[in-house]
Design a protein around this nucleic acid. Structure first.
Lengths: 340, 340
DNA sequence: GTGAAAGCGCTAACAA
DNA sequence: TTGTTAGCGCTTTCAC
């Protein structure tokens, strides 16, 4: 697709086959009402002149770029790769391509996002958090008539096709698990405050604490950013305190691994001295040692479903508006009974 | 970009501003020879009618899709994300978009790859291993006049713009480090045999062994596939042998982490009972415990440079044909002096 | 400095 | 069943 000498077009094929360009077009698009004989002749001619259709011309007239975007901000490699794999899985046989649109800080660039998407001529986009919670982005997308589907939104569920997970319940369950092991001195490492998931997960924790009649001191709550480094830094501080917590609840796996390493560096054993939990069940949680107790969020499945929702809209199939995806508490070796 | 009601076009803007479409085009593309006054009028008109250029029409006439592909097969999330980040870094201000093209088994689909790229209307592609070593793919790309640049090819360096790393020397250095620690009973977990890097790294290991007069028994060499699981499985077998090796050289970090976990599961200490090395310096190597001794491959830098080579060709800038990137031995905690 | 008209390569009404 | 013709929305000679 680059400037240069003459590329063979549908006209060349038509001339070579001795038919009209419309007939060539019909054959190439597998449309009906063409004689077997002509089909063969056109195909031979196409091969003979080494013809390859110009997708840009086709896209222009069809008003379809066959490009789907994936908007995300998440810094966790395994999360991002899961997301991409899911979308690609659904797109594979649909003749759509995936354009990745990572955005450094969506909350800071809400107003620019759709301009970016527009200039990429996308037919549709999958919105991962926190873009999936942005009213502004959804409104702009609608105005630009770019189809979209959302992954794990936490609010305005009606605003667009959504794939839901119950972050609150998931967080409550994992906190309850830790409380059930006898822990009372519990610290928390929150996720990026600009992601609504951080609030939801916090609320779930709070519900579990309330149910058990436990109060968490503010000094026991540290802010992270869903990155390994932020989890490591937060845990290092939390564990250095005189009243060391016996458990740390991190709001994603990357931060949990950061906390784990911080604990090991401090000469503590896990879960002997301190129990640690993550969130998401990304690959790092499995390959840590000890493996991290976490809550599985079906990121891949949500991405497949979201891509499906976009494709459905593009085909004018009756669209699925909302799907719920089940989380699952995964107890591994990083949590244990609280020491006396 | 979807079928529907009338979208405003350059014609609407022209009418609204009382000028010709050519003038609108000139203003929108920042071309010279337009009065200040008209520039302002056109811009106001564009805003007034809520005009957004149709990138597909522009692409058709310019024969430029502004789409760059990234072809890879690598299963390691952190490697893939590094690659993507690098390409995106260079593309950010160039108005190019990144289309990701993961291919399950490039060696099995060599003949189909370029057809896929063609049908995506890409202006250029960055080829990561093992596509960067495929003569067939490069020939097809040239025939389709799709520009490309290669990441870490191991052969036919002249065949296209390349970003080189010295896998052999890097492998030799890390093996020499282990040998220098006194290890003689050394096992190896190789990478995917269809990736030429596996051969190169093996050769580097072999050179180090030869220099030290060490022979490695064939049973001490296991085949992996650059995945955590394959490393884990291979190490589990290697470590179960009566003549347990005191060091394991894995050909990438994911496999090294797999080996690490296998060792810990077997009740061994690292590096006390067994030293383990990786390759690449991906994130997992840093966040393992103990952190993995490895060789840094500047994946991000190579991706930036490769994207730059593609962009340069698209701009008809004198192209850079070849760049070498420096590796770096990174000694962490997973290697130690061999036990007597 | 500005505009009229001719395509880019394809699909799609509408005829034949 | 097949072909003619008119666009899709933009850029680009080439006059004026």
């Amino acid at each position: 697709m680059v400037k240069g000498h003459h590329r063979t077009t549908i006209v060349d094929v038509a001339r070579h086959a001795g038919v009209s360009i419309k007939t060539v077009s019909r054959v190439l698009n597998g449309q009906p009402h063409v004689t077997e004989d002509i089909i063969r002749r056109v195909k031979e001619a196409a091969a003979a002149v080494n013809y390859h259709p110009n997708m840009l011309a086709r896209a222009l007239v069809q008003r379809r770029s066959h490009l789907i975007g994936l908007v995300y901000e998440n810094p966790s490699p395994s999360y991002v790769v899961d997301l991409q794999k899911g979308v690609l899985e659904r797109l594979r046989d649909e003749h759509y391509r995936l354009v990745v649109i990572p955005i450094a800080s969506i909350s800071a660039h809400e107003a620019d996002v759709v301009g970016l998407l527009r200039s990429a001529a996308l037919d549709g986009v999958v919105l991962a958090p926190p873009a999936s919670d942005s009213e502004r982005i959804m409104a702009d997308l609608t105005a630009a008539s770019i189809r979209f589907a959302r992954i794990a939104p936490t609010r305005l569920i009606e605003a667009g096709p959504s794939n839901l997970i119950d972050d609150v319940t998931a967080a409550r369950e994992i906190a309850a698990h830790v409380i059930g092991l006898g822990h009372r001195d519990i610290a928390i490492i929150t996720g990026d405050p600009t992601h609504a998931s951080a609030d939801a997960r916090m609320q779930g924790f709070a519900e579990a604490f309330a149910a058990a009649g436990i109060t968490i001191a503010p000094e026991r709550i540290a802010t992270g950013f869903y990155t390994y480094e932020s989890g490591h830094a937060a845990a290092t501080t939390l564990l250095a305190r005189a009243d060391r917590p016996t458990a740390i609840l991190a709001q994603n796996d990357d931060m949990a691994v950061g906390a784990l390493i911080a604990a090991l560096e401090a000469g503590l054993t896990v879960p002997g001295d301190v129990s640690i939990t993550g969130f998401d069940d990304s690959e790092v949680a499995r390959i840590a040692w000890p493996a991290i107790t976490t809550v599985r969020q079906p990121v891949f499945d949500m991405a497949v479903a979201a891509a499906d929702m976009v494709v459905a809209q593009l085909k004018d199939t009756p669209p699925i508006l909302c799907r719920s995806h089940r989380h699952e508490l995964i107890i591994r070796q990083s949590t244990g009974v609280a020491k006396r």
